[in-house]
Each structure stands twice: as C-alpha cells, then as structure tokens.
Simulated scan of single mutants.
Amino acid sequence: MSHTAHIPSHRKPRRSASKMALRAGVTGGVLSTLAVAGASGAANAAEPVTQTIELPTLTTDLSSQVAQSADATQQAAANYQLQAERDEAFANAAKQAKKDQAVAEKKAEAKKKAEAEAAAKEKAEREAAQQAASRSAERTTLASTSAGTGSSSASTTVAAPASGSVGAVISFLQAQVGDAYVMGGTGPNSWDCSGLVQAAFKQAGVDLPRTSQEQSTFGTSVSLSNLAVGDILYWGGAGSAYHVGVYIGNGQYLDAANPSKGVVIQDLSGYPASGAVRAL
C-alpha cells in the first residue's frame, strides 16, 4: 500500500463511462456543426447565390378572367377602329357633297348666264331686224322721191324723211350741197370727201374713221348691183381708196368732189365707183 493512499484529496474521482461517452458525443456534434458551417461559408464565398422564384399556377377562374379581359380589349379596339372608319367615311361624304354642290351651283350659274346671253342676242337680233326694215323703208322713200331729178348740179336736192338714221345722214348731206371743197376740211362750210362722210354718219350715231382708206373697209361690203340709200361708195381699192361719197338712190351719189365742184350730187354712170360698204 502506498504511503499516500490514505489521503483522499490527492486523487480525482473517477468519471463513469456513460458520462464520458455523452461528453464525447456532444463535443463531436458541436465540432461537426462547426465544420459544416465553415464549409458552407467557404462555398457561399466562392459561388454566387441563385434564387429561383416559382410563379403561382393559374387557376381555372383566373385563366377565364384573363381570357375575358383580352376579349373585351380586342372588342374595344375593334369598336374604336369601326368608329374611326365611320368618321372618315362621313368626312369624305361631306367633302364630296360640298364638291357636288359647288359643281351644281357652277352649272346653274353657267346655264343662267347662257340663257341671259341668248335672250340678249335674240333681243339684239330683233332690234337689228327692225332697224334694218326701217332703214330699208327709208331708202325706198328716198329713192322714190329722188326719181326724175336731172343731171348732176349743185342745185339738185334730194327729199329725205324727217327722222331715222339713214334720213339723218341724207338730210345732213343735202344741207351741205354747195359748200367748198378744201383738202383736210371737216366743216362746217368746207370739206374734203372723207371729212364730209364722217360728219354725215355722226348724225346717225356712227363713228366712222377719218380717212377714205379706212372708211372703204368699215361695215359690210356690198356689191354695186345691190346698192341701197346710205351706202358708202369708194374709188380705188378697199383699204387703199382715194375718194368716197354716199349713194342717195336713183343711180346718184353725193360727195365733196374737188376744189372746182365743191359738194355736189353726181351720176354714177359718169364716174363709176370701185366698191361700196354698208355702215347702217
């Protein structure tokens, strides 16, 4: 026996085998946990963390609502497009109606203008016919009253009606018989041939040109076989005439002849004209 065996404090009490096993197990578990945590931390530090989010699965009711919403959106879009097409068609119809109205108004105005012009033309033709008939009657009267007059002389006179365009011309010419002939003369007491004719027709409201050349192309050309009282006779070519006078009927004319004769009545047979024009 040891010499210290009798002292209890020098010896540690023995632990039971079960307690030791329990401690070993706890210690091992802790170490294992720490090891796993460390390994996990190292792995997390080395690789990024990815997270997957799972979308919820649509239920039958939710799918139906989504389909109905899509149908409603499509129908609304179709309605908007239909309304836009209707608006465009209405705008186009309004523009076309406006154009058609403008065309119709233009046609109506043109028709109205054409009718007015036709009426004015008819009136003018009627008045011209009446005036022509009146002048024809005047010429007939002048021709009949001048029948039986003698040869050309300064004292020969021609009766004329009191009124009318042809009568006004002949009356004026008759009043100038016996006046002097002066080159370039335009009255009141001396004349050249074209100055006398111009002044005579002015009494009937007709503005003749001043020269014989211009007067020979004024109005309507007539043949010498179809002369009427008041026709302008010319000698020389039309447009280049050198003398003019006025036919007074019965184969006679009145003119400012020359400085030796003055204003006289003469027979066409003694000095035939080259042509004639009708200004009345």
Rank of each mutant, 00 (worst) to 15 (best):
I7V: 14
P8M: 09
R11W: 07
R11V: 11
R11H: 09
K12N: 12
P13H: 01
R14S: 04
R15I: 00
A17F: 06
S18L: 12
S18C: 11
A21W: 09
L22V: 15
L22E: 12
A24L: 11
A24P: 08
G25I: 02
V26N: 04
V26M: 05
T27H: 04
G29P: 03
G29F: 08
V30R: 05
L31C: 12
S32P: 07
A37L: 10
A37Y: 01
G38L: 05
A39H: 03
G41T: 15
A42H: 01
A43E: 08
A46V: 07
A46M: 06
A46G: 07
A46K: 09
E47L: 14
E47N: 11
P48N: 11
P48V: 07
P48K: 08
V49G: 14
T50F: 11
I53R: 01
E54D: 14
L55W: 07
L55H: 05
L58H: 13
T60Q: 07
T60M: 02
S63C: 12
Q65A: 05
Q65S: 05
V66F: 01
A67H: 00
Q68C: 00
Q68N: 04
A70P: 06
A72D: 14
T73L: 04
T73Q: 00
Q74A: 12
A76S: 12
A76F: 00
A76I: 08
A78W: 00
N79Q: 08
Y80E: 15
Y80A: 15
A84D: 09
E85L: 11
E88V: 06
E88Y: 07
A91Q: 13
A91S: 12
N92C: 03
N92H: 05
N92G: 11
A93M: 01
A94W: 08
K95A: 14
K95P: 15
Q96Y: 00
A97D: 13
K98Y: 10
K98Q: 14
D100F: 15
Q101Y: 03
A102P: 02
V103T: 13
V103I: 10
V103E: 00
